[in-house]
Write a protein that binds this DNA or RNA. Structure first.
Lengths: 227, 227
DNA sequence: CATTTAAACTGAGTTAAATTCATTATACGG
DNA sequence: CCGTATAATGAATTTAACTCAGTTTAAATG
């Protein structure tokens, strides 16, 4: 927070701030929060150690800056990745694909998120902003009645992001690359069939309830026509 | 790691080790990893600061001790919470209830888990041991054909634990207590209907495949009897 | 262009907390 | 009881975050 620069151009100040963030992200990702020395970050950003503290109150605050920027960028990317005229399920698949891919690619930064203030703090409004992308998709889905299950959106959000995050950890652990079946299967259980695992599925499959109704009407017909 | 005590009774040494762990857990949970001073932990355990380092290589290692013990206890509790003669779905519900409840109650310790070495390290074998409880339930379910979906167990594990962990965070954030509908709804999408949200559901609903077969046989019958 | 001055920057110095280790205490076998 | 291996202690050391008095920079002014 370099106050309100009256003499120096804002652009220059912001360039420096972002170069510090770049360096911090690099070093944090490499060495972890504890392993990263502020002096290293300063050197990587070509500024004196004290300069870092002109922009960020302390190391924690610097981390919050790195993490906050990451989630803000993720929000922008997510919005770009979603086609506004797609069905709810397609949009969820787009978001799921984008999310899993991103957190795999920037796994270290995502992990740093958990170091940015023990939970609930207001520090990470950017994360909250990000999940709204999901909420908007779901709300539209509800409005258009494109969502079967009667599970509250808030709970489905935890299913969605919780599953993808744990899946990412598992993939990282096993040193596996992005696996689209994770997204496919997640959506299968969240919004409806579409044959899990294999991923191939032509057309919408009817719900159990729909089949059941058809079945009953046929049975009735059979009885009526006296077999 | 107090070497191999030859002179002093093992019991005494273990008592001291566990009293250090108790103190550490208390202080860590209270102040967080960074906020906790080793000197405070030592005082709380009524030992000198240096003594802590006889038992644990450093502060990180002490944290790993606390976290490891927590997950070991969780594993024991989980095994006790599951009735061996219940159906797969019932067992999953028992585990789900137990898990969500436990991580809500000991939320701070769970959060500390993420400070114990950046992912994948072998540090937390105890966590891996814990998830095996889930794997065993699922494997038995597959053997007994009590599980419909064709999603790999590994992926369902991420759905299960990922969802419950994120749900716990959400509940904590909103300062809400344990909510059983989270477990109910999770199981509904994981292993089968049982009418979400409300939780009430009488009788097992037939699977798509079963319905489809019935449907086909009726159609055949219709054709044969020449409508 | 020289001057003024406030914003930016610097890095040596301060401080706090983790970790070490020389010293002391304890407990057990003989 | 004594000798000795184990355990415990806490003062000293080390490390790295953070501060701040002094220096540099750059824009506004005449």
């Amino acid at each position: 927070m370099p106050a309100t620069p009256r003499h120096t151009s804002r652009a220059r100040v912001e360039a420096k701030e972002s170069s510090i963030l770049d360096a911090a992200e690099r070093i944090f990702a490499q060495a972890g929060f504890d392993g990263a020395k502020v002096s290293d970050i300063a050197r990587a950003a070509s500024v004196a150690e004290g300069t870092v503290y002109l922009y960020y109150k302390n190391k924690q605050d610097l981390l919050a800056g790195v993490v906050g920027r990451f989630w803000t960028q993720l929000t922008q990317g997510a919005e770009a990745a979603i086609e506004s005229d797609a069905t709810t399920k397609e949009q969820l698949e787009q978001l799921g694909r984008y999310h899993l891919n991103s957190i795999l690619e920037q796994f270290e930064v995502v992990s740093l998120t958990y170091r940015a203030r023990p939970q609930q703090e207001q520090d990470l409004d950017q994360v909250r902003e990000y999940v709204r992308v999901f909420d908007r998709i779901m709300q539209r889905g509800v409005d258009r009645s494109e969502l079967p299950k009667g599970i509250p959106i808030g709970q489905l959000r935890d299913v969605f992001f919780g599953t993808l995050e744990f899946s990412a950890r598992t993939l990282k652990l096993r040193e596996r690359p992005y696996d689209h079946s994770v997204v496919t299967n997640l959506l299968a259980i969240m919004v409806g069939s579409s044959d899990a695992a294999s991923g191939a599925s032509k057309g919408k499959e009817p719900s159990n309830r729909e089949l059941m109704n058809t079945l009953k009407s046929i049975q009735k017909q059979l009885k009526t026509s006296g077999n």
